[in-house]
């Protein structure tokens, strides 16, 4: 049995979650305190990958990052760097499809914060940076963590867009969902079952852990 799909899937999901978390938290916090013309349009744009069929997302990514794509051709010319048919392509597909989940969770978490708490910190002379790290972030953390785990799980299961951007190259870009798809298609049910069990176990324990963790956290916060 070749375990490379497991390692690749974890690598892709971890790296994509890292970037998604940073970007999601930053953008959601930036927008949470502002109301401006076109904000709804911008938010709808962020959430779009959630409702689009994965092949459409994949096609859009190919137009952007393909060898002849807008960004892809530029990267190739200046840095001799190719995204399509590499594991980095899988990371980018993962980022795009899991960003909406992170953004949505983070926006909800920041929205539900009591503005008076951060204002209280401000009246005591705390800088915006300090307000964020000592008041906003700890209070929003349960919501942010939920978004983090959802993004990770989504990245782990990403298939359609990844297949188009990263291609299926055994040993190089075959994530667990791809291994499952092609095993089923070619009738290798043993192999498919193996990966299905792995990915279900993984996803299930992840969600279970988050639920347990956030319940414990809420109890701790309410005690304070």
């Amino acid at each position: 049995m070749d375990y490379s799909p497991l390692i690749l899937s974890l690598k892709v999901a971890v790296i994509s979650t890292f970037f998604v978390f940073l970007a999601g938290v930053f953008i959601a916090y930036l927008l949470s305190k502002r109301d401006f013309f076109g904000k709804s349009i911008l938010e709808a744009l962020f959430l779009l990958p959630l409702v689009l069929p994965p092949t459409v997302v994949g096609f859009a990514l190919l137009i952007l990052f393909g060898k002849k794509g807008w960004i892809g051709s530029w990267l190739l010319e200046w840095f001799d760097f190719q995204i399509v048919f590499t594991w980095i392509g899988a990371v980018i597909a993962s980022i795009v499809v899991s960003f909406p989940l992170m953004y949505q969770s983070a926006a909800a978490a920041f929205e539900s914060l009591d503005e008076r708490l951060s204002n209280a910190a401000r009246t005591m002379g705390a800088s915006e940076w300090r307000v964020f790290w000592t008041v906003v972030f700890p209070l929003a953390w349960p919501g942010l963590l939920a978004g983090l785990v959802l993004s990770f799980a989504r990245g782990l299961g990403e298939f359609g867009a990844t297949l188009m951007l990263a291609g299926y190259i055994p040993g190089k870009t075959d994530t667990i969902p791809m291994a499952i798809y092609f095993a089923v298609e070619s009738g290798q049910m043993e192999k498919a079952t193996f990966w299905v069990v792995i990915i279900i176990t993984f996803g299930f324990s992840l969600i279970l852990w988050v639920n347990w963790w956030s319940k414990r956290n809420i109890r701790r916060f309410s005690r304070m």
Binding site: L62, I63, G66, K67, K68, G69, V84, F85, L163, M164, G167, Y168, I169, P170, Y181, F182, E185
Partner: peptide, 20 residues
């Protein structure tokens, strides 16, 4: 060097878009 497509249309897309 092989990129494996899930159907013949995908193989065509890879070449059409200049990626393969």
């Amino acid at each position: 060097k092989l990129v494996l497509g899930s159907d013949v249309r995908q193989v065509l897309t890879h070449v059409e878009m200049g990626n393969a």
